[in-house]
């Protein structure tokens, strides 16, 4: 029990992570309460998805899990699978932007954040990053970049770079998966079309498979930093690398399949909506 509690204590305490997670959680609860008062209650599963994603991100960043992630390659790859794929997907599946917005103090929201969000520079940056092809290239590019062995060495030695890497993964994950699961209608909001979304998922899946396979099947130690800095228990470097490669290869690629199923569901729903409208029109025609 005490060792469990010790494990849950932060390895390297970060006020940024703590405040970001607590702040997001508090905003969500406050927003959900306000929406309920206004007669627009938020579905329970959305809250569950949001808090599951938030908790996962917190756990891999702010417990002794992070100690293991700093010293064992496969634990690090699992950390990034959670930070870049699973946690952000769960968070955006909850479509939390309305709830979080409702949770903000009204003045702050209306006078500061809304004008800032709709200001030309912020819109320009966001629109550029959220072009489907740029977002896909960025998603894969970040994975490749931090896995260049020399870059990986510096990222594991330097605290600021390590934090930049992990934060970058989480923020990019939120941006990418939001494009994929954004439920707002394609025509009205300029969100990517369903075919485009599936193409994006394919586009990011293939290079992850290639990189994961390359790492898993490599017969020499690519990421020497783990040997240089020591592992917390005797595990052979190649075994560590093979497991890490498999995590980059299979579950990461499977996340594209999961994303694809979600897109199909959105597509069917959009089609069903349109079908009902057409059906209605047909009935009217028949009735006439």
């Amino acid at each position: 029990m005490t060792s469990m509690l010790a494990f849950l204590a932060p390895w390297e305490f970060s006020p940024t992570v703590l405040l970001a997670c607590l702040g997001a959680g508090a905003l969500y609860l406050r927003g959900a309460a306000r929406l309920r008062r206004d007669g627009r209650p938020v579905g329970a599963w959305r809250g569950i998805a949001f808090f599951a994603g938030l908790t996962l991100a917190y756990l891999v960043l702010q417990t002794h899990y992070d100690y293991l992630a700093q010293h064992v390659f496969w634990v690090h790859r699992l950390q990034h699978l959670i930070l870049h794929h699973l946690a952000p997907l769960l968070i955006v599946l909850a479509t939390p932007h309305e709830v979080l917005g409702a949770g903000l103090p009204e003045r702050l929201r209306e006078r500061v954040l809304r004008p800032l969000w709709f200001s030309a520079p912020v819109r320009a940056v966001y629109r550029t990053l959220q072009q489907p092809w740029i977002a896909s290239a960025l998603f894969v590019g970040l994975i490749y970049f931090w896995l260049i062995p020399d870059i990986h060495l510096y990222a594991m030695l330097s605290v600021p770079l390590y934090n930049l890497m992990n934060w970058g993964m989480l923020v990019d994950g939120l941006l990418f998966w939001w494009l994929i699961v954004d439920p707002r209608p394609v025509a009205a909001y300029g969100t990517p079309g369903h075919v485009t979304r599936i193409a994006m998922l394919w586009l990011v899946m293939l290079p992850q498979i290639a990189l994961g396979a390359y790492i898993a099947l490599s017969t020499h130690d690519l990421y020497t930093v783990y040997g240089l800095c020591g592992r917390p228990w005797p595990i052979s470097p190649l075994t560590d690398q093979q497991i890490g490669g498999l995590i980059t290869w299979i579950p990461a690629a499977m996340m594209s399949v999961v994303g694809g199923l979600i897109v199909l569901r959105l597509w069917v729903r959009a089609g069903a909506g349109a079908g009902r409208r057409w059906g209605g029109v047909r009935r009217e025609v028949c009735g006439a």
Binding site: Y67, Q70, H71, M156, L157, V159, G227, L228, C229, G230, R231, P232, W233, P234, I235
Partner: peptide
């Protein structure tokens, strides 16, 4: 940012140490 750990001791009480 280095670490170390101990393997399981053998019959003689010897153990491997994983280190940087």
């Amino acid at each position: 940012r280095v670490t170390y750990g101990y393997g399981r001791p053998d019959a003689h009480g010897d153990y491997e140490v994983s280190h940087s």
